[in-house]
């Protein structure tokens, strides 16, 4: 047997266990892109992260089909955002022990929206179908806690790889805390500056970074309609905002009309779905740059 053959044989023997390790990858299903990004960063090559929602759908209002729900049921872990984000989970059956509610650590700090009409019937009394603000990760300190919840779940699932997960978590935490620090410093430049946001998704961001923010219910890709413009006029009379924050690039027509009202537009993307370019971190860095234009 030649030396080359012996080397190939050795390589083959050593490669076998590595192949076995590759097969041990766990499958993780998530409900939005930020959690997918966190899971990928923390899990690295040891996990296979699946976020099955189509990119053109807001995952918060997405309803997976039965086949996708069955895939979720089979996953090793199901990473939820919590705070009422994934409404579809209320209607389906998921294995409780494999579900990770990443916002559980700060559940007593969740913001409840109490604007809905209540109704009553039968002996149970009045009740409301109001919800909870769910864009938790826009407070980057909360995003850190969500990442920690993912780390804990991974470590329980693959205890042998805890060190890898821990190192990856530290790296992610460093990035998130950097974003948090930038936003915190920036918000002190113009404390109490009146702002409006096009959509009610910035509650946690406003709370964490002391933003004087009022929110309307507009979509960036549609004209809000005259009644909403009227509502905005009334709003800025009481709350003289010079900037409107959008979740996506708004229609030029809307930008123009806002300019006529002396309101400039700026994008702060919540990054619900995977961006076409970059990743969660780069989108958030761009958001902070955009906020810099407002808070400089």
């Amino acid at each position: 047997m030649s030396i080359r053959s012996v080397l190939i044989l050795f390589l083959f023997i050593f490669a076998m266990p590595l192949q076995g390790m590759a097969e041990k990858k766990i499958t993780i299903y998530t409900v939005n892109y930020p959690l997918t990004y966190f899971a990928e960063r923390i899990g690295g090559d040891l996990v296979n992260v699946v976020f099955p929602a189509p990119s053109n759908v807001d995952p918060a209002f997405w309803m997976p089909d039965k086949a996708t729900i069955r895939e979720y049921q089979k996953a090793d872990l199901i990473i939820l955002n919590g705070a009422g984000y994934e409404k579809w989970t209320k209607k389906v059956s998921l294995p409780m022990l494999r579900v990770v509610d990443t916002s559980k650590a700060f559940k007593d700090k969740l913001i409840h929206i109490e604007t809905d009409v209540t109704h009553s019937h039968g002996p149970s009394g009045d009740h409301s179908h109001g919800g909870t603000a769910f864009t938790t990760w826009l407070d980057f300190s909360q995003a850190v806690q969500q990442a920690e919840a993912i780390y804990k779940a991974f470590s329980r699932k693959l205890p042998a790889n805890t060190t890898d997960f821990s190192n990856n978590l530290e790296s992610l935490k460093k990035d998130l805390l950097e974003l948090d620090a930038q936003m915190t410093v920036m918000s002190t430049n113009k404390p109490g500056l009146s702002l409006v946001a096009s959509h009610p998704i910035y509650q946690y961001m406003a709370r964490r970074y002391n933003l004087n923010l009022k929110m309307v219910m507009w979509e960036p890709d549609a004209d809000p309609g005259e009644s909403e413009w009227k509502h905005l006029h009334e709003l800025v009379n009481a709350h003289p905002a010079g900037w409107m924050i959008w979740e996506e690039e708004p229609l030029p027509k809307s930008v123009k009309r806002l300019q006529d009202m002396n309101i400039k537009s700026q994008v702060f993307s919540p990054c619900f779905s995977k961006p076409q370019k970059g990743n969660f971190l780069s989108v958030m860095q761009q958001n902070i740059e955009n906020m810099g234009a407002i808070l400089k």
Binding site: K66, K90, V92, L97
Partner: peptide
Amino acid sequence: SLDYFDFRNLQFAQGEKFVML
């Protein structure tokens, strides 16, 4: 919860686990 089926190692003769409420 669905975990009960895993815990008792219950197999399906026909069909699958429940999906919806």
